[in-house]
Amino acid sequence: MTLVESGFGKVADAFHRTVDDDGRSGAALSVWVDGAPVVDLWGGIADEHTGREFTSDTPALTFSCTKGMASVLVAMLMERGALPPLDSPVVEIWPEFGAHGKDRVSIGDALAHRAGLSAPRRDLTIEEVLDNLLTADALAAQEPLWTPGEHHHYHAVTHGAITAKLVTLATGRPIKDAFEEYVARPLKADAWIGLPDSEQSRVAHVVLDALVENEPTADAETVYWLERAINLGCGFSLDRVNEPRFQRAGMAGVTGIASASGLARIWSATVTPTQGVRLIGDETVEALRTVRAEGPPFFDVGPPPYQSWGAGVMVPSDWEPYLSPASFGHDGAGGQVAFADVDARVGFAYLTNRMVDWERGQSVVAALAEALG
């Protein structure tokens, strides 16, 4: 049953305008305020091949929203003392990471895309790419692409390997199991970093043909490193994200799976008790969302707007304004938007299975800002 509390009608209208009516794709929206849902909506098609419709609990690929999910887990482990604080050197828990001058890289810098490891120098095998820890070991052994701490560049895929390694070092368990125990299960959230086989048939099928890729304008070397940040030297690309083996593998930067309600309640629980659970406290939230990287990245990606980063979370910028300066979260390729807002005590998730743009989710966020006044 859909939910639209009084005062949120314009949010519902904005959401419905984002759902294509061509029978190929759909979307879902969940908004929580003060730990309770105020909007839960869905519409359209979850799988164009079968005609299966989006429902309240349809899980969808979260793409880079997965980074936010993983970073919240890292923050929880820090708060519990299982990981050292953000400004501690990574080598304090992961000695091998210090090779080739990376010994001074802090955990916070590694999470804020400042470690110089946005792409592997050697070609990884598909087996390594499907294993967070093997990818992490390859990154730890390599020379960074720039002097760590002096620049930043988005670690599109490799970020997940780093967070997964930190979680395993802290817990002795794969990130999929730790995430399930510490985050998803307490909140009764349909959210996974590593999809169980039993859930595969429920997942929305991603429609990719609407995505328009811009022609590269940078020099050949820059294009090489930008492309390598995605393909990792093994040919991994967006057109493989519907393959079950990638979803099962739980690549902790890109292949998380969640329902909109599951993802929204996770972000809600970072700023206010939700389902009786508060994942992290106020002090940890402030540490997580403190700006650590902003402005032009190391490799030329063209003119602004540019993203801004806390420790593994995206913070407000011209690229992604979110709800207010007190917001933090993560967007995802092709339109996903998920975040919390400290002042409004909001948890928000907009998920879609159609790769087009970010403007759809942002239009819903703008309507929410108006509704909240």
Score class of each variant (00 low, 15 high):
His16Glu: 15
Val212Asn: 11
Gly295Asn: 07
Leu77Asp: 01
Glu227Ser: 12
Asp57Gly: 11
Pro84Tyr: 05
Asp13Lys: 12
Ala191Tyr: 03
Val90Gln: 03
Phe299Thr: 01
Gln307Arg: 14
Leu263Ile: 00
Asn242Asp: 14
Thr158Gln: 08
Thr50Tyr: 09
Trp225Asn: 05
Val271Pro: 04
His49Leu: 13
Ser64Ile: 03
Glu370Trp: 10
Pro304Met: 09
Pro186Glu: 01
Asp21Ile: 09
Asp131Ile: 00
His113Glu: 09
Ser363His: 06
Arg228Cys: 08
Ala70Gln: 04
Gly347Ser: 08
Asn132Tyr: 02
Thr58Gly: 01
Ala260Gln: 02
Lys10Ala: 14
Arg24Lys: 14
Gly347Cys: 08
Glu243Gly: 06
Val38Lys: 00
Gln247Arg: 15
His49Pro: 00
Val4Phe: 03
Met314Pro: 01
Pro303Val: 09
Thr171Ile: 04
Gly329Thr: 02
Gly81Asn: 10
Arg185His: 14
Ile107Arg: 02
Asp177Ser: 12
Gly347Arg: 07
Val313Phe: 11
Glu127Asp: 14
Ser327His: 08
Gly98Thr: 07
Arg17Ala: 14
Ala46Trp: 00
Val157Arg: 05
Ala264Gln: 06
Met78Glu: 11
Val212Ile: 15
Leu29Asp: 02
Glu359Ile: 10
Asp300Cys: 06
Arg240Trp: 13
Ala70Pro: 00
Glu150Gly: 09
Tyr154Arg: 08
Val301Lys: 11
Gly98Ser: 07
Gln275Ser: 15
Leu323Tyr: 02
Glu92Met: 10
Leu86Val: 04
Glu150His: 13
Pro120Lys: 03
Val105Tyr: 02
Glu215Gly: 10
Val33Ala: 07
His159Cys: 05
Ser198Leu: 10
Gly334Tyr: 01
Ala220Lys: 10
Tyr182Arg: 15
Gly51His: 10
Gly116Met: 05
Asp219Gln: 12
Thr217Leu: 13
Asp282Gln: 13
Val254Cys: 03
Thr66Trp: 04
Ala269Trp: 00
Arg80Asp: 11
Ala140Asn: 05
Pro296Arg: 15
Lys10Cys: 10
Glu128Ala: 09
Asp219Asn: 14
Thr163Asn: 05
Ala82Trp: 05
Thr2Tyr: 09
Arg52Leu: 11
Gly108Arg: 00
Glu5Ser: 15
Pro325Trp: 12
Glu227Arg: 15
Pro305Asn: 11
Val356Ile: 12
Val277Thr: 13
Val206His: 04
Gly335Cys: 00
Ser30Trp: 02
Leu238Ser: 06
Glu283Asp: 15
Gly334Trp: 01
Thr168Leu: 09
Ser25Phe: 04
Leu133Gln: 12
Ser106Asn: 00
Lys67Cys: 04
Pro196Gln: 12
Tyr322Lys: 06
Leu73Ser: 04
Asp40Val: 13
Arg173Gln: 14
Ala218Trp: 03
Ser71Ile: 04
Trp192Asp: 03
Thr171Cys: 08
Leu351Cys: 01
Leu41Tyr: 07
Gln142Met: 13
Gly312Val: 09
Val31Leu: 10
Ala161Glu: 00
Phe236Ala: 06
Phe236Asn: 04
Gly233Asn: 08
